[in-house]
């Protein structure tokens, strides 16, 4: 009997690996092995085969463009993600209250996700360019025109277009979190005389903590895609306030700075893993409380 079971189990294990094989093979060839190669290269000299230790890393870390890009990317993430999380949560709570129109609002918020950046790039120019619509409006209201894309405002424009694109995505995540809160909790609280704000503070927020961390991770992932807007509107060398790591990688790629790219990619990957692990850890301890 026991032998038979283990035979069955072995057959299942073989089947499992066979199903997984094509994917695993492809990932190894196209992602894992090349990445290991990149890690190896990050310790070697460009042409020669000489081992240089951490020299490439130190070159990258002393590179002015890298420091600027890393600073901008960090600033962007730290501005955008809290803003996005708060705005989308507030909107989601409001959407839940709208029974008849709730779905319409949700779908509307989600639509920008489907709109190709290239399609709106032209419109963003019409809006924000020096002689664009926004400046026209400002002049009509008696203000001074601003060169939006070539000043520190470029950063704000990028934040807004990130929010425009990602609010729906986060709303869907929040709404699924909200819908999993049992309504009996609210009813019990109402009997105890809790008001709307108290309910939100003591029932909704604590129940949403797991959703918060996941939404934060996915928003972080999506925040890297804001390069599309920045690149299609402002090109390879935008205003220095929105020169991001993504621009830098792109420019290093054009000049085929493989060594720098390898070292920077390893650092970026490590930062990402640490960041995400930290968020997950925080999420876990938040749930246990």
């Amino acid at each position: 009997m026991r032998k038979k079971k283990s035979k069955l189990q072995r057959r299942e294990t073989i089947a499992a690996w066979l199903f997984l094989l094509p994917s695993l093979l492809g990932i190894s060839i196209f992602i894992l092995l090349p990445f290991l190669d990149a890690v190896r290269r990050s310790f070697y000299q460009a042409m020669g085969k000489a081992f240089v230790g951490l020299e490439n890393y130190s070159t990258v870390l002393h590179n002015e463009a890298f420091l600027l890009a890393a600073k901008n990317t960090g600033r962007f993430i730290l501005t955008c993600i809290p803003l996005l999380l708060i705005i989308s949560l507030l909107l989601s709570v409001m959407v839940v209250g709208q029974k008849r129109w709730g779905d319409f609002f949700k779908v509307s918020f989600l639509i920008p996700m489907a709109i190709p950046v290239a399609s709106v790039a032209l419109l963003w120019q019409i809006l924000f360019q020096n002689k664009g619509l926004l400046n026209h409006l400002i002049i009509k209201l008696g203000g001074q025109p601003v060169d939006w894309m070539n000043s520190n405002y470029a950063f704000a424009i990028l934040v807004i277009s990130y929010l425009w694109k990602n609010i729906g995505y986060d709303c869907v995540l929040w709404l699924s979190g909200l819908s999993s809160i049992p309504s009996s909790l609210y009813e019990a609280a109402a009997i105890d005389g809790a008001g709307g704000i108290a309910k939100f503070r003591f029932i909704t927020l604590p129940a949403l903590i797991p959703t918060l961390f996941i939404t934060a991770v996915l928003s972080l992932v999506n925040s890297f895609k804001v390069f599309r807007e920045a690149y299609l509107i402002a090109g390879s060398y935008p205003h220095s306030s929105i020169y991001m790591l993504q621009h830098l990688f792109n420019n290093w790629f054009i000049s085929l700075d493989v060594q720098k790219m390898c070292a920077a990619a390893v650092m970026l990957a490590a930062t990402f893993v640490v960041f995400v692990l930290m968020i997950y850890r925080m999420g876990k301890s938040g749930v246990e409380e």
């Binding site: 196209f30 992602i31 090349p34 990445f35 996915l218 992932v221 890297f224 790629f253 990619a265 970026l268």
Partner: peptide, 18 residues
């Protein structure tokens, strides 16, 4: 999961190499 959340820039140079 880790591969899913990595931004394109992480695998950009390695994809190029292969």
């Amino acid at each position: 999961i880790v591969l899913m959340i990595m931004p394109f820039q992480v695998t950009m140079v390695s994809s190029y190499l292969v």
